[in-house]
Amino acid sequence: MFIIGELINGMYKDIGEAIKKKDKSIIEKCALAQIKSGADALDLNCGPVSKEPIYDIQWLVETVQAVTDKPLALDSSKPKVIESGLKVIKNKAIINSTTADLEKLEILVPLAKQYQTKLIGLTISSKGIPQTKEQRLELAATIVAYCSEGGFAIEDLYLDPIILPVNVAQAQMRDILESIHEFKIISDPSPKTFVGLSNVSQGTKVRSLINRTFITMAAAFRLDAAILDPLDRDLIDALITAELILNKQIYCDSYLEAYRRK
């Protein structure tokens, strides 16, 4: 599983403060802690406190790439913010994210091609969040079709079925899981599949348990990547074990440690 660490996000108080005060040390520390715990890439999101996200995203990119060469996910709903981040990025980049709306695809797919980034595609549109598997698949097909017509490699596309909180949309959970599997067979070569995990437990009292239960189930439905909290050790242990059960790792007595060494 490709793990994107979610913690560099201005909506967290300490990160928001650090962005405001341009305090590099807090960001650096957060970046390195996530990598040490198993993150393969880091998400960068200026959050709601940022008044000037176009500048702040550049500061975040420069701060983080000074301490790691891991891929960075530029996380914004505004294409201009993403483009601004791409201008200064030296590490591999992931665009987080486009929706299935044409006005976003038109800007972000060419950008992803130009900067040779991976692209996260949310199966969502201006009409709202999909309510069924069929709607998710339709939106996924729109994104896939746009990318392949535009010459963007489908293997670099990460489709997100949009997870809803379990306490809000319990009836949709099975559909969401099945969508992950169906995204994989939408084209050959397959797109990658992706979720923003923490949303599933939003507003619940046992967040970590719900997160790790969902991720193990999603792994069985062919999930390739997730944005999550890599410092949640139980979560990462569950994820590693799920991959073991799926025969993606060779068992040995120290398999947890072996995975973390990769």
């Binding site: 060779i250 068992y251 040995c252 007595d253 120290s254 072996a258």
Partner: peptide
Amino acid sequence: DINIAKQLNIL
């Protein structure tokens, strides 16, 4: 035994 081979390399 692949499992033991892997474990031994780690040890």
